[in-house]
Nucleic acid binder design. Sequence first.
DNA 1: ATCGACGTTCAGCAGAGCGGAACGATTTTA
DNA 2: TAAAATCGTTCCGCTCTGCTGAACGTCGAT
Lengths: 257, 257
Amino acid sequence: MSTSTTDEEDRIDAVVKALNILEALWQADGAGVTALAERTGLAKSTVHAHLTTLRSKGYVVQEDDEYRLSLRFLSFGEHVKHAEPLYAASETPIAELSERVGERVLCSTHQNGLGTVVNVSEGTRSFTSDIDVGTHTYLHSSAGGKAMLAHFSEERIDRIIDEWGLPVFTEETIGDRDALVDELAAVREAGVAYSRGEYLQGISAIAAPIRDTDGTVYGAVTVAGPDHRLANEWEDRDLCTQLLSTANTIEVNLLFS
Amino acid sequence: MSTSTTDEEDRIDAVVKALNILEALWQADGAGVTALAERTGLAKSTVHAHLTTLRSKGYVVQEDDEYRLSLRFLSFGEHVKHAEPLYAASETPIAELSERVGERVLCSTHQNGLGTVVNVSEGTRSFTSDIDVGTHTYLHSSAGGKAMLAHFSEERIDRIIDEWGLPVFTEETIGDRDALVDELAAVREAGVAYSRGEYLQGISAIAAPIRDTDGTVYGAVTVAGPDHRLANEWEDRDLCTQLLSTANTIEVNLLFS
DNA sequence: ATCGACGTTCAGCAGAGCGGAACGATTTTA
DNA sequence: TAAAATCGTTCCGCTCTGCTGAACGTCGAT
């Protein structure tokens, strides 16, 4: 996932630099001053000053000759997770769905034109993947993202495309604006969105939007699994029905929170 | 929990200010510019500039006339959680223990002289509390913290007391250095640490340290519950045995990770 | 219609943050 | 064993950036 917006409205340089260092530290899973300086394009002394600051505030720890993100981020992470209504509302429903269909079920939402996975329930047949709670995704290249996008206004979709573009990940990824608009119309028609390897080769998914009565889009539920299993099953009306039922349950849960 | 160290080695002002704003935003669970300016003691325009920066980098979102932490922190949170070996190593053992004893079981570790809850497993009789994954705790005022402290060197204990002090939360909290040293000797003797309402009134806990063969302290397992249940049970050798067995299982798991 | 509270914008000055070079300490190569 | 490379850290001066206080525009409440 891209680590910085294309927006040049960044105002405070020092803060942007500190955040870039944190992001680099996150991607590298711990690193030394020199490595971070290369990765961020800053002078070693600058990186050092930032790391000292971050360490004294407890956001970074220094051990085994490298700096790492500290457990303080755990507080923030848990905080935003529980502050997100979808988290509690989806917990039980997606657990039931994943048990029933045996595949991995995800619940995601959107923020700043990107998707974020809020909750995951593993199925008995779950595959390994790097998609987990907290993972950011582009909205155009995943089933859940398309399920959400389909119910946005056209201007909003344009703004998102302007900001994030339509990066292509596999041969199946929709990289063209007009093709995407057509696809979204089909999604609205069908009520669910499909992805056959549009983000990860060999992985298919079906997703349903989670919406309010007034049309506000809160998120999406996604069932994901290997092509060969899901591609056969999604002809199956039953999977769609269960998926929509789960989405509806979450919608109802959201009303009482 | 205190939001800033007593250490005055902070180097980059702008970053410190940005972090203070994030912390204020976290504590307030979303707030406006004016409220944040009051809380942090900065000028409104300064807060605004920082929020603009943080928003453009995607760390903060603006909705319903207030700013909130964004879901980006979810990535960081999950990252540090999975990077912490204790998380995976404790998952199964504490689930089994909480099922057996019916109380809440926590696994915590230490960083910068503070404790952090890494994993929690609810028991059937779990009480509600504000202690959750990611919660920071002082080491002197909790069972888990004392279990860890007891196996630190005396100089290290002194350094921690110097940095964080011995704040008193209830009538039972140990606020005196010498009393703490005596207590820690008793903990070493017993192999487990007790807390009877030393942090939260009415809540007792028993904890065992998680250590390496060379004595390195990785963390602690804690069983927590209401006074009236645990106070009776901890005479019971059986609870201690199960606790120590769980701690040992985690220690073994750590060796194979 | 008036007032108050809020988020936002503006401009100028003080001082803070940045980079380049140098320093010790440690490890790797010859 | 000595030399050379690499790393983290420190220092210093210059430029430019971040900070503040005041002013502006907008919304809601009175």
